[in-house]
Simulated assay, not measured.
Amino acid sequence: MRSMIQMTPKQVNRLFLLVLAPFIGIGLSIWLLSEPPRLQLDISSYTPQQSLETQTGNVSRGLELASATVDQTIASIERTGQLYRQTTSAMNSIRAQAESQAGLPEYIYNRRITSKLGRPIETVNTERITLELYKVNPGYYQGHALKIKLKDPNAMTMVLGNGQPGKAITTLQAVRNHGAVAGINAGGYADGNGGRHPLSTTFINGSYVTGFQPSFKDLAFVGLNEDGKLIGGKFKSRDELDRLKPKYGATFVPVLMKNGVKTPIPAKWKTDPTRAPRTVIGNYKDDQLLILVTEGYNETGNSGATLQELQRKLEQLGVKDAYNLDGGGSSSLILNGRVVNRPSDGQLRPVPTHFLFFK
């Protein structure tokens, strides 16, 4: 009986290696002799489309285009600014021309009324007021005209002598006391009880001095309202006068002009006196004021102007409304610190009310 050969695991492994070795060698030889396999990868998406020089050129051209765009924008802004300046200049020119044209009627009207007065012999012109002094000499009387343009309503006022009723000072004293540049006598007066009292209704600083008195006989009130416009006439009631908002005013006689028309002069005042030194206040259509002060060497009726003559003169000068103020020895005209007229008393008469004008 044949015995079986027993082999260990290690011996078995060696046996397999010996058997397979020729085959493994043949396989390696074939692999080494054959062309090695190539790995196919798509790397086109990772490859730059353009060269670095091309990209640099593109960036440079982009910057040049941006610079040109900026230059064009700046030029456009400059053209717009220039056009704006030209437009603004044109609009300013149009506005100035419009303002000039708007003031032309006033200028023409002022030239027209001034031409009738002649050449001023003295002028005061400030931001608040313009005063022009003229000589008036129609042949049968002499005097002066003072044309006044109130640019500020507060450039004119009325004062009492020494600031209270019953007291009287000259117009020159009133001008000096209040620092005025010009002044004239105002309303009439009555002497009594040791004083010189304003006649009838007198209004100062927005209030009645001695209360309201209805206009009687030929008396009339004259003054300025809160807007610096001349007001006046006969008033039967206080409400009638208050509606005109008076700021100050005085009373005398008579009314000479209303709305450019001569008013009838009461018979008494045509002959009592016939001629006399006179003080008249009036206004033009543009609210400029005109003061007439005529000369006279006494109050006997032989020198000075008649009221009818003054009416004709006022009408000739184009005055709208006019009122006679106190005259005779009371007539006073002060300008720049001096007495312009020649008082018939030989010196200025103290009176209770004065119209004053300020620079």
Rank of each mutant, 00 (worst) to 15 (best):
G223Y: 11
G163Y: 03
L150I: 05
E226Y: 08
V181W: 04
D191N: 15
K167V: 08
N154P: 00
R243M: 02
L230K: 14
N225E: 14
D191R: 15
G187Q: 06
I169T: 09
K229P: 02
D191S: 15
A174I: 06
F235M: 05
R196P: 01
G166S: 08
H197L: 12
F203E: 00
P165V: 07
K247W: 07
T170Q: 05
G192P: 14
K236H: 00
T201Y: 02
V175K: 03
G211Q: 04
N225P: 13
L199T: 04
F235L: 05
A186W: 02
G161I: 09
K229Q: 15
V159M: 07
K217N: 11
R243E: 08
T170D: 03
D191G: 13
T170A: 04
G192M: 15
G161L: 10
Y189L: 13
K234T: 10
K245D: 04
I184C: 10
N193S: 15
F212N: 01
D152Q: 09
T210E: 07
G233W: 11
P214Y: 00
A190I: 14
L241Y: 03
G223C: 12
S207T: 07
A174G: 05
K245M: 05
T201R: 03
H197D: 12
A168I: 12
L199Y: 12
N225Q: 14
K247M: 11
Q164N: 04
P153K: 11
K217G: 02
G188H: 07
N185C: 08
R243W: 00
P214G: 00
S237M: 01
P153Q: 11
N185K: 09
G233L: 11
F221K: 08
K229N: 15
V159Q: 07
V222N: 09
L241Q: 03
A182M: 09
K245Y: 08
R238F: 00
V209E: 03
R243T: 05
T210L: 05
G228R: 14
G223M: 12
A180I: 06
P165M: 07
R176H: 01
A180M: 06
G206V: 03
H197K: 09
G223N: 11
T171I: 09
A186Q: 04
M158H: 03
D239Y: 01
F203L: 02
K217D: 12
F235H: 03
T202E: 07
T157W: 04
L224H: 10
Y189A: 14
A168R: 12
L160Q: 02
G163D: 07
G194L: 15
G194M: 15
P198G: 08
R176A: 03
S215R: 03
G161C: 10
L172Y: 00
V209H: 02
L244M: 14
N177V: 01
S237L: 02
